[in-house]
């Protein structure tokens, strides 16, 4: 086992991003797609923290603060939209939600 370097962390973060990306592509349930979006955001924060640690700067760590805030706001609004959509259409399956009108 070699010591964990920046490459290791960025590779883990890229793999996590890839898993979230394929979740967005493959799943039809809007809620699960949304969870996979969150996974992608977390993967990007992992890369930021790793870069920050291995370059001895604070900027990446502080940026993660803002990402957390935006993610919280995004989840609140997104889930409200999903609930409103469900009230209107009685479904949240993506392949049944294919028209913008009615």
């Amino acid at each position: 086992m070699t010591s964990a370097t920046l490459d290791h962390y960025v590779l883990i973060s890229a793999l996590l991003f890839a898993i979230g990306f394929f979740g967005v592509l493959l799943r039809r349930n809007t809620l699960v797609v949304f969870m996979c979006l969150e996974l992608m955001l977390v993967a990007s924060t992992l890369a930021l923290v790793a870069f920050s640690r291995f370059n001895g700067t604070m900027d990446g760590n502080v940026f993660v603060f803002f990402i957390l805030t935006v993610a919280a706001a995004e989840v609140a609004v997104g889930l409200a939209i999903i609930v409103a959509l469900f009230r209107k259409r009685q479904t949240i399956q993506l392949n049944e939600l294919n028209s913008l009108k009615n």
Partner: peptide, 19 residues
């Protein structure tokens, strides 16, 4: 933030919608 608030919100909505 994530485990305490966001995942709890997700679980709440999943159970609310009961699809």
């Amino acid at each position: 933030v994530y485990a305490g608030a966001i995942v709890a919100l997700f679980l709440f909505i999943v159970m609310l919608l009961d699809m």
